[in-house]
Design a protein around this nucleic acid. Structure first.
Length: 739
DNA sequence: TGGATTCGCGTTTTT
DNA sequence: CGCGAATCCA
């Protein structure tokens, strides 16, 4: 028998083991495709396999696929998987990366069209704030009433929406701060241009501007010829700018494949628009939609619980995950006295699991906000449980790293004013505010950079001799270092700079407990540089890519926020702090109403679906926040868990009799909108009685202080009101109490 | 200019 | 309460 026959009929190994929907998604290579993939349905596998398949069947060469992710980690994973699929083919030159790294790569080629040169600097947010501060000082704007940080946030938000200054319209302006931000937006852009710099938002925004411009239609046409396929991961997280950029590029081939899950959209607060999913069919005619609904991750109990919680959201595209896995254990729900007790209990459970043979590496504690981590860390340390915290300041966001980078940036580009300003007096050299102001004033008058101003002024006698001498020394140093760039290994140069500038000595002399760690980080930075061919390449990389690699060698319990957990999975997941106000976050609900609540609920969904085998959910009666005690009631999400899949163990006496009489348990009946409107509450006559004279005798009352106000639950009154600092009544939401 | 002290505020986070 | 930023004062 000829084996050829066999080979012809045999499906490629990478297609084996895919279910029908997955396989369809992989093999649909023509035309626009939207893959709605639920949690744990093999989304990443499908995406990478599809890429590999396209390359394998010769539909495109690697350079003809534009594959976009949000995080470097995801990009890295995708690279590895596709490369492995192709027998270890190297991935050099592929257009595979994050939105920002790909846009930056493009922008370097066309920077001149937006008034930049190709070696532009990418600013971090510290730099952005410093720049806005300068502009505000110049215009004599009160920085107390108008925090520069807030201005930066507003401008960044506009950039996320794809708006250049002239695009910002009335409906994007709410209040004085927005108007101030708009007045600063244009000058801010001009200033960026003058220092040959971009912020993160600009990378996409400038590219959109260039690609849209009919004057440069040849550029867009070139990319259309280049990219036969566009692929996007985590599509539900795209913001408008990212969407516009994608659409411009994908319109050539009309061949775009987006993979996402509307139920896992948890970045709305940073500009992500789930609506982009809804627009997909309209924008890309003939789009095919494939749903992946078979979950391969979790037990049936876990999946049912997640499904039940998310079904309370009204704004969904609709998906019902199923699994053929066994029921497994029910989800444990536990109420405890306070955060310390919660951590104690969770750690006990973890130790018990460990003794049954579960690995610490397969356990995670997922919190809503990072302050919840402390109590867990304390307990981990006490018990000697191995753990690692994911999140917190990233490597390149650390102060010492940014300082070191600022030195390198000034060496690479002497006109990087923001970098120079950052370190001109670090370590302390006796160059204070007054000196900086003089230098800037001179620079503005002569239209030159800070660096040039220093050189300029040192030729004159305008500065005090001491200051002048110091500045001349600084300039001398930088000139010397710059002369070394071409004939010194850059990691060696970096070491020299940090040493000669006195920066290392500064930390060596520092007796703060974290100083040794900072020196360690600097060492790491210098050694990391060795991998890069030049200083410029390194600086580009660090601005966009560098991350703290986890160098954990022993299996440890993962402690992180729910946001950080997206895309990950663990055998066993602890979800503490399911209390009203904390989770769902009060602020989220105050600021975004029902939308905010639904995003919080998606976060709950993400949390539960991280678990493969076992999930523990807990809440406490007394939570310590910002130094004061807060009474808390269980999260509404606890009530939304389906009784049949849950095992509840509430501690008796978890609420203090002194603080409240009895905790009302929530009815699961919210009004049809999911949250009562202020109007419907205000119109109730009994409200007046509460707001004016407190409560009648015999009322059972539960106070919950939260943020600026107090939520008051009145048994039998069906009320839930908050008073802000000024004593003004604010209705947050309502619930129906029992009895 | 820089150390000392008070003030103010306090989700989630990628690039 | 605990931290960074603003402000005060030598």
């Amino acid at each position: 028998m000829s084996s050829d026959l066999f080979v012809v009929n045999e499906e490629p190994p990478y297609l084996q083991g895919l279910n029908a929907a997955q396989r369809e998604a992989v093999e649909t290579v023509d035309g626009p495709l939207l893959v709605l993939a639920g949690a744990g349905t093999g989304k990443t596998r499908v995406l990478t396999t599809r890429m590999g398949h396209i390359l394998q069947i010769g539909a495109a060469f690697p350079g003809q696929i534009l594959a976009v992710t949000f995080t470097n980690k995801a990009a890295q994973e995708m690279k590895e998987r596709v490369s492995a699929l192709l027998g270890g083919q190297p991935v050099e030159g592929w257009w595979l990366g994050t939105f920002h790294s790909l846009a930056a790569r493009m922008l370097r080629r066309h920077a001149d069209h937006v008034g930049l040169s190709s070696n532009f600097t990418i600013l971090d947010d510290d730099d952005q704030v410093r720049l806005v501060k300068q502009l505000m000082e110049l215009q004599n704007v009160d920085q107390k009433k108008n925090p520069p940080k807030a201005i930066v946030a507003i401008i960044s938000r506009w950039k996320d929406k794809g708006l250049i200054p002239s695009d910002v319209q009335g409906n994007d302006l709410n209040g004085d701060l927005d108007r101030l931000a708009l007045s600063l937006y244009h000058p801010y852009q001009e200033r960026l241009k003058s220092v040959n710099a971009c912020d993160f938002g600009d990378l996409l925004l400038h590219m959109i501007t260039i690609l849209k411009d009919p004057k440069h239609s040849e550029i867009l046409a070139d990319y259309h010829r280049r990219f036969k396929y566009v692929m996007v991961d985590e599509y539900q997280d795209t913001n408008v700018a990212q969407y516009l950029w994608l659409r411009l590029l994908a319109k050539g081939s009309n061949n775009i494949c987006c993979v996402g899950d509307d139920d896992q959209s948890i970045y709305g607060w940073r500009g992500a628009e789930v609506e982009n999913i809804l627009r997909f069919e309209k924008d890309f005619e003939g789009a095919k939609i494939i749903r992946l609904e078979e979950n391969y991750r979790s037990t049936s109990n876990i999946l049912s619980a997640a499904n039940a919680v998310i079904s309370n959201n009204s704004n969904r595209l609709g998906k019902e995950l199923f699994t053929s896995d066994q029921d497994g254990e029910k989800i444990t729900v536990r109420g405890l006295w306070d955060g310390a007790a919660e951590a104690r209990w969770a750690c006990e459970e973890m130790e018990a699991l460990q003794s049954k043979g579960w690995s610490a590496g397969q356990m995670a504690v997922l919190v809503r906000t990072s302050f919840q981590m402390r109590e867990f860390e304390e307990r981990f340390i006490q018990l000697g449980l191995p753990y690692r915290v994911i999140g917190g300041p990233r490597f390149y966001e650390r102060k010492e790293i940014r300082d070191a980078l600022a030195y390198l940036r000034v060496v690479a580009q002497k006109n990087d004013d923001l970098a120079l300003e950052r370190i001109i007096n670090v370590p302390k050299r006796g160059l204070g505010d007054a000196t900086i102001q003089t230098l800037y004033a001179h620079g503005r008058a002569k239209q030159i950079s800070l660096y040039d101003s220093i050189q300029d002024l040192c030729q004159t006698d305008e500065l005090r001799p001491k200051v002048k001498a110091t500045l001349m020394r600084v300039i001398d140093d930088f000139e010397r270092w710059r002369s070394m760039v071409d004939n010194t290994a850059h990691s060696e140069l970096a070491g020299t700079i940090l040493d000669e500038s006195g920066y290392l000595d500064m930390w060596k002399a520092d007796k703060a407990p974290d100083a040794p760690g900072r020196l360690e980080n600097l060492k790491e930075l210098v050694s990391a540089m060795e991998e890069f061919e030049s200083l410029a390449v390194f600086l580009e990389h660090i601005a966009l890519v560098l991350d703290n690699q986890d160098n954990s060698n022993q299996p440890s319990i993962t402690l992180m926020t729910l946001h950080g957990a997206k895309g990950l999975e663990f055998d066993c997941v602890f979800l503490p702090g399911w209390e009203e106000g904390l989770f769902p976050s009060q602020r989220s609900m105050d600021e975004n109403g029902i939308k905010g609540l639904e995003e919080e609920r998606r976060l709950a969904y993400v949390g539960i679906t991280r678990a493969r085998k076992k999930a523990f959910i807990s809440y406490v009666g007394n939570r310590r926040m910002h130094g004061s005690w807060v009474n808390a009631i269980p999260s509404r999400f606890v009530e939304e868990l389906p009784a049949g899949h849950v095992e509840t163990q509430t501690e008796t006496g978890m609420y203090s009799a002194a603080r409240s009489v009895e905790v009302p348990s929530r009815s699961r009946h919210w009004d049809s909108s999911g949250m009562r409107t202020a109007r419907s509450i205000e119109s109730r006559p009994e409200i007046e009685r509460v707001s004016e004279s407190g409560f009648s005798r015999g009322d059972r009352v539960f106070h919950q202080k939260f943020g600026n106000g107090t939520i008051i639950h009145v048994d039998g009154q069906k009320l839930d009101i908050a008073f802000d600092k000024a004593g003004k009544k604010r209705v947050m939401d309502s619930f129906v109490t029992q009895n």
